[in-house]
């Protein structure tokens, strides 16, 4: 199903351009080729070829850093629990680190969602899958669900009903921060309710399994919190898992979903995501200043999108894409 995964994404563009005759999936193009309306088709195809050639140079790279980060952080985070119970843990430090791990975990799992660590059938596929699985445990968002929802986001970016991230739409940064909290409330028609509806519409075994994984992980999370709390370690559980999860989810929603897609009105290949300058810098915004490049070429890993943006900028400007200094 992963048309937008890695190489598939760029192939899909050529399908839309009529260079390869392949039917589009669903009732709307996943990544329609739009851009400056004044450019004729010949120029647009030429620009796309040039763009694709440049982008290819940035796909792959030092991908080992993602599993290394994911497994190291997971092991450190896991060690916090026995250390906290034994009283050998600096809790404020553990809280800060757990929050960093929660946010960073989504970045490493994101690479796995796009199979950038190991393609299906490759020798490193298992590493790809396990990197994804361990990375999202802290935020209690199983990899199976995260991957399905993220790929749906790519297929239907900014579609009010089909984009699972659409509930993050907000008028401004403060409203966006508020929405990250609101969408997690139990009775609000926020993220999890949208996910469940989309999964039901998909109706596949993969979708049903991901929902079961989510229920299982949620129950484990609650069991750990309740068990630790009633054993006298409520503060430890709050600072190692509960708070880092909530802060991490809000941070992720703000920077990965709201900031690069604001105002969420356009659905074109060159208009559904924006380039922006973050006050927290490129690392502080978890590389999301150039998330636009990721939507064009999901095979380019997070740590190379900025570099790729600088190389692609002249071609993108010819297309009429607003390219700020980043």
């Amino acid at each position: 199903m992963a048309v937008t995964e890695g190489q598939g994404a760029t192939d899909a563009i050529f399908f839309r351009e009529g260079l390869v005759e392949t039917p589009a999936r669903g009732d709307a193009p996943a990544i329609p080729l739009t851009g400056d309306a004044s450019l004729d088709k010949h120029i647009r195809v030429a620009l796309l070829k040039e763009e694709r050639e440049i982008a290819r140079r940035f796909e792959g790279g030092k991908m080992w850093i993602y599993p290394a980060f994911a497994f190291t952080c997971y092991a450190i985070w896991l060690s916090f629990f026995p250390l906290a119970i034994m009283g050998w843990l600096n809790l404020p430090l553990a809280f800060v680190l757990s929050t960093v791990f929660a946010v960073g975990g989504y970045v490493t799992s994101h690479e796995a969602m796009h199979s950038n660590i190991g393609r299906p059938g490759s020798k490193t596929r298992w590493l790809n899958e396990w990197t994804g699985k361990v990375s999202t445990i802290i935020i209690v968002f199983p990899f199976s669900m995260a991957r399905l929802m993220h790929l749906e986001h790519h297929y239907h970016c900014n579609h009010p009903e089909k984009d699972p991230d659409y509930p993050d739409r907000a008028n401004g940064p403060w409203h966006a921060i508020y929405k990250t909290w609101l969408n997690r409330q139990p009775g609000v028609d926020g993220s999890i309710h949208i996910y469940k509806r989309i999964l039901a519409e998909m109706g596949t075994k993969e979708a049903a399994d991901s929902l079961k994984d989510t229920i299982r992980l949620q129950l484990i999370f609650m069991a750990v919190l309740f068990g630790m709390a009633w054993s006298g370690y409520a503060i430890e559980a709050a600072l190692i898992w509960w708070l880092p999860r909530h802060i991490g989810l809000s941070y992720i929603r703000f920077y990965l979903s709201w900031a690069p897609h604001h105002p969420r009105e356009e659905r074109g290949r060159y208009t559904n995501t924006r380039l922006f300058k973050s006050r927290l810098g490129h690392i502080g915004s978890i590389g999301m200043e150039t998330h636009f490049i990721h939507h064009l070429y999901p095979g380019i890993p997070s740590h190379r999108t900025k570099e790729a943006y600088h190389a692609l900028r002249p071609v993108l400007e010819k297309r009429g894409v607003h390219c700020p200094e980043i």
Binding site: L225, A229, W230, A234, I235
Partner: peptide, 9 residues
């Protein structure tokens, strides 16, 4: 299950 002991502790 969680808030009550968290408040207490």
């Amino acid at each position: 299950g969680f808030i009550a002991p968290l408040i207490a502790q």
